[in-house]
C-alpha cells in the first residue's frame, strides 16, 4: 500500500512536468499541424540553459526561469519566422524532415558544447534530498516543479479561453482558413503558437534539470513521453495533454515500482500503442477513429 501511494505521488509529481512538455507539443500540433520532432530538444535547451546560468551566474534554477522564459519566447518566434514558416501548410514529409533535422542539429551542438556526459546542477540539494510526509517521501524539486507545471497550465488555459489571442488561436486550431477569412492573422498566430510551445518546453527543461541529469540524448526521452501524453489526450487537445502527462507519469512509476525500473518506459510505450489501437483519437474525445 505504501509502495502504491509512493508510486502514485511520485508519478503525479513527475507527470506534471511531462504534462508541460506535452502541452507545448500539442499546442504546436494543434495550431500548425506540425508534429514537432525537435520538441524534445527545446526541453534540452531549457535544461542546458539553466545549467549554464546556475554554474556561470550561480542563479537558483527556479529564478533562472526569469531569463529562460523571454529567451525561449524569442527563440520560438525566430524559429517560426525564419525556418518553420517555410514548411507550415506544405506536406507532412517536409515538416517531419525539417523538425527532425533541427532536433539532430541541436543534439549535435549540445554534444559539442556540453560533452556527451551526464550533467546535473552541482551542489543543488532540492533534487536529491528526501522530505518525509507520513509514510511517503517527496523531493522538494519534484514539488516545486509540479507547482510550476500547474501554474503554467492554468495560465495557458486562461490565455486560450479568456483572451482574444486565445480565441484566435483556438479558431486557427479548428479551421485555419475559416479563421483567416474572419480576420485572424494566422501567420502571426503561428509565430505566437511556436513561441509559447518552445517556451513551455524550456520551462519544463529548467524544472527537469533540478532532478534529472542533462545529456545530449535526454531530449528524445521527453519527446517520446510527450508523444504518449499527447496521443492519450488526442492530438491537438492542449489542456488535455496535461492530464495525459499525469497519466504517463503514473504509468511510468507503477511499472517501475511493480515490474522493473529498467522497463518503466516499456510500460509507457505499451500504453501508447494500446491507446492508439483502441482509441486513436484519444481518451477524451467523442469522435470515432479517423
Amino acid at each position: 500500500m505504501t509502495t502504491f501511494a509512493q508510486a502514485a505521488i511520485t508519478g503525479l509529481l513527475l507527470g506534471g512536468v511531462y504534462g508541460l512538455v506535452a502541452m507545448g507539443l500539442s499546442l504546436v500540433f494543434g495550431v500548425m499541424r506540425v508534429v514537432n520532432f525537435a520538441h524534445g530538444e527545446f526541453v534540452l535547451i531549457g535544461m542546458y540553459g539553466t545549467l549554464a546560468l546556475y554554474t556561470g551566474l550561480h542563479l537558483n534554477p527556479f529564478v533562472a526561469l526569469l531569463i529562460i522564459v523571454p529567451g525561449a519566447l524569442l527563440l520560438g518566434a525566430a524559429l517560426q519566422q525564419v525556418l518553420i514558416s517555410r514548411v507550415t501548410r506544405t506536406t507532412d514529409l517536409r515538416q517531419l524532415l525539417l523538425t527532425l533535422g533541427l532536433s539532430l542539429i541541436i543534439q549535435s551542438l549540445a554534444l559539442i558544447i556540453f560533452s556527451p556526459s551526464q550533467r546535473s546542477l552541482p551542489g543543488f540539494a532540492w533534487g536529491s534530498e528526501l522530505v518525509r510526509l507520513g509514510p511517503i517521501y517527496v523531493r522538494p524539486a519534484h514539488v516545486v516543479g509540479f507547482v510550476i507545471a500547474v501554474v503554467v497550465t492554468g495560465a495557458l488555459a486562461l490565455l486560450l479561453t479568456r483572451t482574444d489571442l486565445g480565441r484566435a488561436m483556438r479558431a486557427t486550431v479548428d479551421d485555419a482558413e475559416m479563421a483567416e477569412s474572419s480576420g485572424v492573422r494566422t501567420n502571426r498566430i503561428y509565430v505566437v503558437g511556436m513561441a509559447i510551445g518552445v517556451c513551455i518546453a524550456c520551462i519544463a527543461g529548467a524544472v527537469l534539470i533540478t532532478y534529472y541529469p542533462a545529456s545530449p540524448n535526454a531530449g528524445q526521452t521527453f519527446l517520446v513521453i510527450a508523444f504518449v501524453a499527447v496521443v492519450l489526450a488526442g492530438l491537438g487537445n492542449v489542456v488535455g495533454a496535461f492530464l495525459g502527462g499525469l497519466m504517463a507519469g503514473l504509468m511510468q512509476q507503477f511499472t517501475a515500482s511493480f515490474i522493473s525500473v529498467e522497463l518503466q518506459d516499456v510500460g509507457l510505450f505499451a500504453l501508447f500503442i494500446a491507446v492508439l489501437v483502441l482509441r486513436p483519437n484519444g481518451l477524451f474525445s467523442r469522435k470515432q477513429a479517423a
Binding site: 524532415l97 527532425l100 533535422g101 533541427l102 532536433s103
Partner: peptide, 11 residues
C-alpha cells in the same frame, strides 16, 4: 550532417 541534410531537403 544528417541534420543539415534533413533541413536542406525539407527547405
Amino acid at each position: 550532417v544528417y541534420g543539415i541534410a534533413l533541413v536542406a531537403v525539407a527547405l
